[in-house]
Design a protein around this nucleic acid. Structure first.
Length: 263
DNA sequence: CAGGATGTTGGGTC
DNA sequence: CGACCCAACATCCT
């Protein structure tokens, strides 16, 4: 599930419940998920430290502790939760818990694909994340046009390239392309400035509504709601959707409104 | 019960 | 180097 809107929700949770609090102790029920230190090292490093303001860039999230910083990525699975319950539930995928002044932060990755990295300083975060493009929530239409101007190949691949634009995942990109009425394999070079402008407006709209919801919605007016259906149809024109693979990801497209070849 | 799944990495090819 | 493809990761859901 975790797409950018979910990660933004997790950032909000950190800002609300963790920033400004002090670490009293840690639990690491799944040490394999913790990278860059040991459970003992994590406790030694964080105990007594105060949490600063969390940062999200694309689908990456980090929390500085007055120097040492925890970097979170959720991959295909994973959540953050905060509450009074201090008890780890390893069966449910609890991996790293931080016990703070007034509650416990719980990083859970049920399929164990997510990771939490420890780095000594916020300056070292980029060593973990690698090169990231502009955060998609900070990207204006001109910037999008400029970035696409340097790219070749298919539009969906370009939008999903985290080194170009950080934050767009499979579900968001399908939703955006459907609203912009663009075929996922549209050659990037075929878009003129007006088309990029329209694409950008749709992108902003999808992001705003998704972040507001805390996830990519799947209601009746969202293409995303057709995902997983045995007979997916276009929420606007009710044509049967074309489902296939693009860039190795399951892709949905309306053959009538996003014309072009089959996926 | 086999197959597929939201993401990323690393290998390989052209 | 860029674009693209694939397999792997570990587990859950259909």
């Amino acid at each position: 599930m975790p797409e950018l809107p979910d990660v933004e929700g997790h950032r909000h949770l950190l800002a609300e419940h963790v920033a400004g609090r002090t670490v009293r102790g840690v639990s690491v029920p799944d040490a394999e998920i913790l990278v860059g230190t040991t459970p003992q090292g994590l406790g030694r490093s964080l105990r007594g430290r105060q949490a600063g303001d969390p940062v999200r860039h694309g689908k990456w999230l980090w929390e500085p502790f007055d120097g040492p910083t925890l970097v979170f990525h959720f991959r295909m699975t994973g959540t953050l939760a905060f509450g009074a319950d201090e008890t780890p539930d390893p069966e449910a995928g609890d991996a790293v818990l931080l016990h703070l002044d007034d509650g416990t932060l719980r990083y859970r990755t049920s399929r164990r694909l997510g990771r939490v990295w420890w780095v000594a300083s916020a300056d070292d975060v980029a060593d973990v994340t690698g090169t990231l493009g502009v955060d998609v929530t900070d990207m204006g239409a001109d910037r999008l046009a400029e970035l696409l101007g340097h790219k070749r190949g298919g539009l969906k691949s370009a939008l999903m390239d985290q080194e170009l634009i950080a934050g767009l995942g499979n579900e968001l990109v399908d939703e955006i392309l459907w609203r912009a009425k663009l075929h996922p394999k549209t050659s990037v070079g075929d878009l003129d400035r007006d088309a990029v402008g329209d694409l950008h407006r749709r992108l902003r709209q999808v992001l705003r509504d998704s972040i507001r919801a805390g996830h990519v919605p799947s209601g009746p007016t969202w293409l995303n709601g057709q995902r997983g259906s045995d007979d997916p149809v276009c929420p606007r024109c009710h044509a049967h959707l074309d489902v296939g693979q693009v860039s190795g990801r399951t892709t949905y497209r309306c053959p009538r409104e996003q014309p072009g070849g089959a996926l």
